[in-house]
């Protein structure tokens, strides 16, 4: 069995304090500078809704909303985002009231295994907020940073088109 001091070894490696507002709550992360925002959320704040699919910015599963923009949490160091406001899949509903995109994902069966879904949802919210995609093809193009290996693509795009058409929502 290892001693307590050995267990704390990692803390010697230059921890940084990172202040974040995550899903509306103030959080303080004590992490080494090389901890990605993704691992910070998952391993340190136990917000495991955000997923690691490739860890290299090639699948979109780790997409979160940071200061109103969709970004990849795997290619971001947590320390870079000190003072930022972050929304993850756990924070997109308002209490028990689902975000319209969440309901639309259920209605359109826009997922199967569900692993890419948190990233798809955050990306969709980012896309709608950006307001750059008008046509179905444009939505597809601007959602192409989120891979779905189950092939739920049609449902994903249908869901976004429906919410866009509904308008008004963020």
């Amino acid at each position: 069995m290892r001693s307590e001091t050995q267990n704390l070894n990692h803390l010697k490696q230059g921890d940084c304090t990172v202040n974040l507002t995550v899903n509306g709550e103030q959080k303080i992360l004590q992490v080494q500078p090389w901890v990605s925002l993704l691992d910070g959320l998952r391993d340190h704040l136990n917000l495991t809704g955000t997923k690691k699919g490739c860890d290299h910015g090639q699948c979109g599963a780790c997409t979160i909303i940071c200061d109103d923009k969709r970004i990849l949490s795997c290619l971001t160091l947590a320390v870079m985002k000190n003072g930022s406001e972050i929304t993850t899949v756990e924070g997109i509903a308002h209490g028990n009231e689902l975000h319209p995109i969440q309901q639309a994902f259920i209605d359109h069966d826009a997922f199967q295994c569900g692993y890419c879904t948190p990233g798809q949802l955050c990306s969709a919210i980012g896309l709608i907020k950006e307001g750059k995609a008008q046509t179905r093809e444009e939505v597809k193009e601007l959602m192409s940073g989120n891979l779905c290996r189950c092939g739920a693509n049609i449902g994903i795009i249908d869901a976004i088109m429906e919410v866009k058409a509904g308008g008004g929502h963020e």
Partner: peptide
């Protein structure tokens, strides 16, 4: 609709 859908779209 999938009965487990709610868990998948809320990160749970």
């Amino acid at each position: 609709n999938r009965i487990d859908g709610i868990l998948k779209i809320t990160g749970k």
